[in-house]
Design a protein around this nucleic acid. Structure first.
Lengths: 157, 157
DNA sequence: TATTGTTATACTCTATAACTATA
DNA sequence: TATAGTTATAGAGTATAACAATA
């Protein structure tokens, strides 16, 4: 396995002891492995889609549930009202969604896509699907099905 | 299944259309499911351990690799230098780790636990393991083994 | 009184760029 | 010239508390 006399190695410099980091305690943790997978997908997502996963999540939820209020949308993502507000503000400033006073309950704002939002959601959804499928393709159908089941067990209390 | 005449339901108010958010497009996405699982574990982690997963990750990496430099530790977590710095500063201010000038390369700082850090890492590791095991226990041994394999496929390019 | 949206504020993580001291 | 650490700065997400309008 090891090559003790590897003189042409790519080692760039000497350390006090060695360069090899022992990560074994960390790798025993399920939480760490989930986090690393999430970070990996997160970075690819932003690069390919041009918005963050959270922004996309709210964008697509509004698209799929036009007329719903902020609070209800936020709840569906386990987000508090203020955090939801921040994302809604960004999507509104980007001209993708709009708030309309609810006719039923005037405390509420019903959320709708703008004309631009309606065009963009199609492109965005395509890019998201393409990115997501790239990761799914690393697994067989059966593996993906199992993974989904296991993630559900971790997600839902 | 449904109870059309459920007059004593917990519905709090009327919406423009309905309260039920359709999340199906989102739930088709593997990235979304990973993120939800990660958020769930993240919140529990902070509550139980008293520090963030990232802070713990660096704390335990230093403990397991005393004498290593910041850059090397950060690389092991796919973090850039500046982000690593921010976390190191916090751990140092908390009195858990210390930087010592490397004797081999004076640009580098070798990282060590303080006396306090040495005491704390044991307590922290116990709390982390307890929290992590709570999630692991939702799966059988075989399921956990499979999940680990699938997460590796997503994590590593 | 309770709820919805809002504002103010603060904290964590992440990232880029420029600086410094060393190599 | 390149590297390690640092500093300044900024943006994203999250969260708590308090306020106004409305129920």
């Amino acid at each position: 396995m090891s090559q003790p006399g590897n003189l042409s190695s790519a080692r760039k410099h000497k350390a006090d002891q060695d360069e090899t980091v022992d990560r074994s305690t960390l790798e025993e943790k399920l939480g760490f492995r989930i986090r690393m997978a999430e970070r990996s997908i997160y970075k690819t997502f932003i690069q390919n889609v041009g918005m963050t996963p959270v922004q996309y999540s709210i964008f697509t939820l509004v698209a799929e549930n036009e007329g719903m209020s902020q609070g209800v949308i936020g709840e569906a993502l386990n987000m508090d009202r203020a955090s939801t507000m921040a994302i809604m503000d960004k999507l509104e400033k980007a001209g993708l969604i709009e708030r309309r006073k609810s006719l039923v309950d005037r405390r509420r704002h019903a959320l709708y896509l703008t004309a631009k939002g309606r065009k963009e959601i199609v492109k965005t959804e395509n890019k998201v699907k393409q990115t997501d499928d790239k990761f799914k393709q690393r697994l067989t159908d059966k593996q993906l099905q199992e993974l989904t089941k296991y993630l559900n067990l971790l997600w839902h209390e």
